[in-house]
Amino acid sequence: MRYKVYAPQAFLKQGLFALIAEIWNELARNRWLTWQLFKRDFVAGYKQYLLGFWWVVFVPFASILSFMLLNKAGIVSFGSVAIPYPLYAFAGISFWQIFATGLINATHALVNAAGMIGKINFCRKSLVIATLGQATVFFLIQIAVGTGLFFYYRYIPSEKALLIPFLFLPLALLTLGLGFICAILNTMVREIANLLSFLMTFLMLITPVLYQRPSSGVLAAITRYNPLYYLVAFPRDMILYGQSAEGAGFWASSAFSIALLGVSLVFFHIAESKIAERL
């Protein structure tokens, strides 16, 4: 008979490869659960909000508008953008929102399900992955709105816009990787979620999402090593112009995202058994 064994620090004895195989099998086995959890959040969210998903569209528009006002007042400068600014900003912010919404939702994933985690043994990784589904839906809605925007400005995007699903993937993986880590940290220190919401706007400003990469100064140095910048800027450029100067950064950031996801999964796997008793 094959036994499932629960023992302290069992993963130390099994080795890294066995551990990774175990995580992979768990994720594969729980695809249906992940889908169901996503559907649950989605349906419940849809029923709850009066504005429904208009909210999703409203937030980026509000950011873009306020930024245009700041620009007009001369407080910030966009740099020179060859195309109508709202198109430029909307394309960038749509990708940015995957990260912002996805990471905040993922951070809350475990704490929100505390009652369940303490009573039922199920795949908690599915909880985190399911929250990314939410961000993906928001992204799809924004693509629809964005299409309307392109029509309005009579601007024809590059045919490379059809690559959106692939352009989207690395950013989603980075979000998921950070999400796994933040979800665990948030169970231990509840301030993490508050801190993140606070940091998000700041991060958006230094990434630059709404204006072009500065060529010199502190911000330029930060941007140079910020994977978020490449993961947002490259897809945006590909959609708008069909080419981008950030190709190398994009691929490097993609590799970084995949590696981070791997590490964070192992971290999550080891830590999750410790959090069930403390939630």
């Binding site: 008979m1 094959r2 036994y3 499932k4 064994v5 629960y6 023992a7 302290p8 069992a10 985690i117 303490g118 009573k119 039922i120 043994n121 058994s273 410790k274 069930a276 008793e277």
Partner: peptide
């Protein structure tokens, strides 16, 4: 019961579930 269900992990000893 929670240990048997694998929700929490033991500090010593082990549980084998077949």
């Amino acid at each position: 019961l929670r240990l048997l269900n694998g929700i929490i992990m033991p500090d010593t000893g082990q549980v084998s579930i077949g």
